[in-house]
Every structure is written in C-alpha cells, then in structure tokens.
Design a protein around this nucleic acid. Structure first.
Lengths: 123, 123
DNA sequence: CAGCATCCAGCACGATACTG
DNA sequence: CAGTATCGTGCTGGATGCTG
C-alpha cells in the first residue's frame, strides 16, 4: 500500500475529506449509485430496486447526489410527469471503489458475524 | 465493471450487506483503520492522530472494531496502564478498498465542491 | 493513561398525509 | 408520477466530570 494515500486519509487533510466520505458512505448513497450503474432510471424504478428505502430518503439522497454532481436529473414535460436519473462521469467513477468496498464486505461478512458472536459470548 | 458484484450490492442481498457497510463506512471507522495501517498504536496516540475525534467516539469505535475482529486490543499489566491497538489480517485487508474510496474522495473533492457552489447559486 | 458515566442537542430516518 | 409537508423517535456524537 503506498504511503502517499495513507497520508491523505489520515493527517489533517482529513477534515474536509471526512465530510465528503460521510456524504458518500451514508446509508443510501452507495446503494443508489450502484443501482444507477444499470443505466437511466425513473423515480419509481429506483424506489422499487433499492430495497427498504422510503420515498422521503430517496428524494433527499437523489437531491444530494445531484447537488454534488454525481447524477443528472432530467424532467420531461409530459403528463404524467417523467423524471429520469442517470450517473454523470464523476458518478460512474465512484462505482469502482464502491464495489471494492462492497466486495470486501461480502467477502468478510461471515467472519465478522462469527467474530461478533464470539465476542457476545465472552461478554 | 463486472455484473456479478453489481448484483451483490444491489438486489436483496443488500439488507445484511448494508448493515455491515453502515458499520464500516461510519464517521470514524475508516479513519481509524487507515491510521492503524502505520502499525501498533496506543489509545492516546490514536486520539492525537485522528483529527477531531472525541474520547468517547474513539472508545466506542475501537470496541466495535475489536468486536468485529478487525483490530486486537492488548492490555499491558503495568502502571501506568498501556493499551495497544493493532490491525488483524482482516483489518489489514480493509485498507486497500478504504484507500480506494479515500482516493476517489480526494480526487473528486474539488469538483464536488464546485458543483455544490454552482447548485447553491441556482437555488 | 485509558477509560466509563451522564447529560443533552441535533438530525437521520420512517410513517403518514397531501399535491401539481 | 414524482414528489412536498409535517410529525415523531431513536441514534449519533459532543461536553463534562469521575475512576483504577
């Protein structure tokens, strides 16, 4: 692991960095970005494909992603209204690291689960 | 991007996965793991090297990491007491994906910042 | 030194109801 | 269809003070 990056996540640049990491790593962001990796989706389609998200949180998270320039929001002037969400190049570039982290979680989930149970017994 | 992993983060395996991601991606976990990449550190050393963390959150986060088997906690029977924290192999394996995400955040921080300001002006 | 206990503010999030 | 508005709650996380 190269020390340059290690320095960047630690030390003091961390302050501003942490704010962005918090934003990205929150409850729904990674899930929505990963879902939009399929391509353009409408509000309701996202609502169905992201399991367990409420309408409210979907709206809020999408607004934040739009504000940060990770997705585009396209309103079609029709009746009934149609709004489509898609990843920007920046948003797409998040897919790789997001999947790296998700892959890690999937790989180590059993071990973590086991470790938790062992810990629970000891206490 | 391979579709296999995309499926795993989305869909329905997401439920259990999301719980672990939430744990890992919280406010301090990645920062502490990255800091421990240097090697074994004591409580106070961590307290100083992780900027802005409170004693309370450092303790809580370390306990969770220990419970999940990502770090070891070694108490030396001395006066004054000395407690040392170090990454387990599982913990070390988290460094790579963590840095991938941190690297992304560092790379795109200026763009995100700019996008936010542009958005603020529009509203 | 390395913590635990306590109190408290803020907001993340869900549930529900209403709208252009 | 794609939201907004409002209410209520539990958790996050900081501040402070005390212990072995």
């Amino acid at each position: 692991m190269d020390y340059e990056h290690t320095c960047m996540i630690r030390g003091d640049g961390g302050r501003a960095l942490r704010a962005i990491l918090d934003q990205i790593c929150n409850k729904w962001t990674l899930l929505i970005v990963a879902t939009l990796d399929q391509g353009t989706l409408r509000f309701t389609e996202l609502h169905h494909q992201v399991p367990g998200i409420s309408q409210r949180m979907l709206t809020l998270t999408l607004r934040n992603l739009e504000r940060d320039g990770l997705i585009t929001r396209t309103v079609h002037a029709e009746v009934p209204p149609r709004v489509e969400y898609a990843l920007t190049p920046t948003g797409k570039s998040l897919i790789a690291p997001a999947l790296a982290l998700a892959g890690w979680a999937i790989t180590h989930a059993p071990g973590i689960e086991a470790s938790r149970e062992a810990y629970a017994i000891r206490h």
